[in-house]
Nucleic acid binder design. Structure first.
Lengths: 222, 222
DNA sequence: CTCCATTTGTTGAAAATTCAACAGAAATAT
DNA sequence: ATATTTCTGTTGAATTTTCAACAAATGGAG
């Protein structure tokens, strides 16, 4: 467990919890750590909403697949970020999304009933944990608003530029990497992959951006 | 304040709080009630994220208006529902959306600092309030997933049918009213209004649905 | 009731997306 | 190193959306 120290410290779920107390608490919560190979399913749609997950290494994607097999990517989860908390906290029977490993990854799983219902030891961390969960959920809601701002645009070009601008802002730099390949970016922006490639080429020719693989740079022109 | 009793009782923020304690608590929180005429702005984008709102009567819409004046409707808020909580709880400087009165309405505003930071009286309701906030935010996240399921569809017809199916399911009845007129529905589904009208007409002719104004009915055929 | 403003439905043209198919590039496995 | 698979960019055709403009229907105000 020690090797996850640095990651867990940065997890918003454990804000304001002293590191010496953290491991005691994790024992109390009865956490478990699991590993998944690339493309493996971490949580599947329809399964009980019981666990809150924390990515320890690698990365995961929250996806929805509709009746016709169309995939849409809701978000990308990086180390020390939390997933599944909304379903666990809302106490719904089954989760409406699938979580897949985007690369080999390790995740910590916490049975949400250990968080939501006061523990038998009545340890003082619960209140802080619930407060942290609330802040985390608030932050998630805001990031959904941002995604909505992107996908509400009507053209592929606008969606792409809105996404890239927000990324540049988040990274604080005009040159940055994105966590998606082309098909994934298309599924995140909710557009056609080939149409997205066309648009990227156009923007490159117009001198608006530089791109190579998953590295992008917004040029002055824009 | 007494006249809002029934509404406040149903507010998820006050779950598991005895009604006799509710009013004492509201005083402690220093709530205020304000009225807005139809189309008036309740909270405007860019303003400080200080208040959590509860709709007491009428209804409000959460909207985003982009650089070009395109409006998109994120959600509709009915009496006893909460708004603005995500921005208040995430402690961001300014809110990224606008809240407008959809009809004459009254809202209760609670300064979030009174909820997030333990009150001087150290009254026991805070923990419950924060727990309720957490559950409310979890529920909001889930409803965003649902909206995403709608808007991720690629055609106007699919978006419309997905929306109507979800509404029918929510109402538990194939015949129901929606809280939007045509333009608003278009802005919620993120499609063109005239194209939406065309699609509704087609579906009506095909016998898939009945519609008149904002009343819809999904017919057997579907 | 009449007038006026708003909402809804309809149309056709222009623009954009989707779709399928394929070729070249890049990554992976043997 | 080579073969195989996956990913990316390109194309053209078909579909769909968007846009602008207008007519019909609806709803309110006076």
């Amino acid at each position: 467990m020690k090797k996850y120290y640095k990651i867990l410290e940065k997890c918003p779920l454990f804000d304001n919890i002293e590191s010496e107390n953290l491991f005691k608490m994790l024992r109390c919560l009865g956490v478990k750590v699991e590993s998944f190979d690339k493309k493996y399913t971490i949580m599947s749609e329809g399964s009980p909403a019981r666990y809150i997950g924390i990515v320890l290494s690698g990365s995961a994607q929250i996806i929805q697949v509709d009746y016709f097999g169309f995939r849409s990517i809701l978000s990308n989860i990086e180390p020390s970020q939390v997933f599944g908390e909304a379903f666990a906290c809302a106490e719904i029977k089954s989760i409406p999304v699938t979580v897949v490993a985007n690369e080999p990854c390790e995740v910590m799983l916490i049975d949400c009933s250990h968080i939501l219902h006061t523990c038998s030891n009545n340890c003082g961390f619960h209140q802080q944990l619930i407060f942290n969960l609330m802040k985390d959920l608030a932050a998630k809601t805001i990031s959904f608003h941002q995604k909505q701002e992107i996908t509400s645009k009507r053209t592929t070009r606008e969606k792409l530029m809105t996404y890239l601008s927000l990324q540049a802002k988040k990274e604080g730099c005009n040159r940055f990497q994105i966590p998606f390949n082309r098909q994934e970016l298309a599924d995140y922006l909710e557009v056609d992959r080939s149409g997205l490639s066309v648009e990227i080429s156009k923007l490159r020719n117009e001198g608006v951006l530089y791109s190579k693989k998953n590295t992008f740079e917004l040029l002055e022109k824009y």
